[in-house]
């Protein structure tokens, strides 16, 4: 989070709305620990990362949906499972859960 603060502050200073995604849980092999975070502004600019690049673009889509009011703040799960083999996942085979929310607090 610390490394995101400069970008977030700069975005907020221009009045842009911001969503943040934080890793809250990992199962099995996960590249980043709980607390790894990224932030997305309403123009789609991104700072930080939550995996080794495996799920970032899907997180941006979720974050923008939340900023546009098309989805509520929520937990989003990424990872492979038998019935979900084509979903966005982690190449290391783990599962990560992210909480994505608007930064309106």
């Amino acid at each position: 989070m610390k490394e995101l603060l400069d970008d977030i502050d700069r975005w907020r200073a221009t009045g842009a709305r911001v969503a943040i995604a934080r890793v809250v849980d990992i199962e099995g092999s996960g590249p980043r620990l709980p607390g790894a975070a990224m932030a997305v502004n309403e123009a789609g600019e991104v700072t930080g990362s939550v995996s080794g690049g495996c799920v970032e673009s899907a997180v941006v889509a979720e974050a923008l949906a939340i900023l546009h009011g098309d989805a509520p703040a929520r937990v989003v799960t990424f990872g492979y499972s038998d019935d979900d083999a084509f979903a966005v996942g982690l190449t290391c085979g783990g599962i990560i859960r992210l909480f994505i929310e608007p930064l309106d607090w």
Partner: peptide, 11 residues
């Protein structure tokens, strides 16, 4: 942060 259940997003 409440991430699931009543009051999601409460801090």
């Amino acid at each position: 942060t409440v991430i699931e259940g009543a009051g999601i997003g409460s801090k």
